[in-house]
């Protein structure tokens, strides 16, 4: 199915999922990828995305870091402005798109070129070739986990299909951990109707914990090579704490995979 076949509301959710995950991955690439690290060294700019009457979000590149900013394009040197959500979807899936680049900086050309270089690194990790994957397994896995959490956040905040179920999830923090690898942890926190993804453990005690037996299990799960229900039954994935919080993520994950399958 292509995004043209979706309802306008679904196109909006898809745009949130795709752009949210992409920005999340850029943030992590700045931590993991030498090419991106080299590209952003000594650079400072903001690139924004905006949809007429709707979403505004941007990424800030500064101090060798990439930071996604929700709800704002303030200070952006370049803003890609789309008449409708689906044009943003077209851009994010590499199709022809209608958009208006608003250039506010003299260095706009360089910003656009730099942004293209950065985003070109995403598939290197997410659709990694076997050799690359071998060498960067932990980084890829970490990125997959965080991108999935970001996708969950976007679906949970924007998708009306799952809204009633999302409302039933208790507030609190869910931590995703890998056994015997304390560094490989990401979290999603629900507070009312908003969700926050953090890519590290922050010292607070989570209300629920989902633990992968090893990084390989996490990788296989997020690349669709094993079934979550089986992994739970075999305890390759373990759950502890406030279980309804984790159970609450499953319908959102199902919905996320619906969006992820859209071309």
């Amino acid at each position: 199915m292509t995004s043209d076949e979706l309802t306008p509301e679904e196109q909006k959710v898809l745009a949130h999922v795709k752009s949210g995950s992409a920005f999340q991955l850029l943030q992590m690439l700045a931590e993991e990828d030498p090419v991106v690290q080299e590209e952003i060294r000594n650079k400072s700019f903001i690139l924004g995305l905006s949809v007429a009457g709707g979403m505004k979000r941007s990424v800030r590149i500064s101090d060798s870091r990439i930071t996604p900013l929700d709800g704002s394009v303030k200070g952006a040197g370049v803003i890609f402005r789309f008449p409708v959500y689906n044009e943003l979807n077209n851009l994010l899936s590499g199709k022809k798109t209608k958009m208006l680049p608003i250039l506010r900086s003299l260095a706009a050309g360089k910003i656009i070129a730099g942004f293209k270089t950065l985003t070109s690194r995403i598939p290197v990790y997410i659709n990694a070739e076997p050799d690359f994957l071998d060498k960067n397994f932990r980084a890829v896995t970490r990125m997959l986990i965080c991108a999935a959490l970001r996708g969950i956040k976007e679906v949970a905040e924007n998708d009306s299909y799952t809204a009633a179920r999302v409302a039933g999830i208790p507030d609190g923090i869910i931590a995703l951990q890998v056994e015997n690898d304390a560094g490989l942890e990401a979290r999603i926190e629900k507070s009312g109707s908003s969700f926050t993804v953090t890519t590290i453990a922050d010292g607070r005690i989570p209300n629920a914990v989902l633990t992968f037996k090893d990084a390989d299990t996490a990788h296989k799960l997020f690349t669709g090579k094993i079934n979550a229900v089986v992994a739970l039954g075999t305890s390759d994935v373990r759950i502890r704490g406030r279980i309804p919080m984790i159970q609450g993520l499953f319908p959102i994950l199902d919905r996320l995979s619906y969006y992820m399958a859209i071309e």
Binding site: V229, G233, S235, R238, I239, I246
Partner: peptide, 26 residues
Amino acid sequence: VELFKRAVEVIPGGIYGSKAPGFVIP
């Protein structure tokens, strides 16, 4: 666990409702 793996192939979710593995501690 072996029965559950077989079940998942032919029964949606393997075991459903409150008897599903996720309601206890797998």
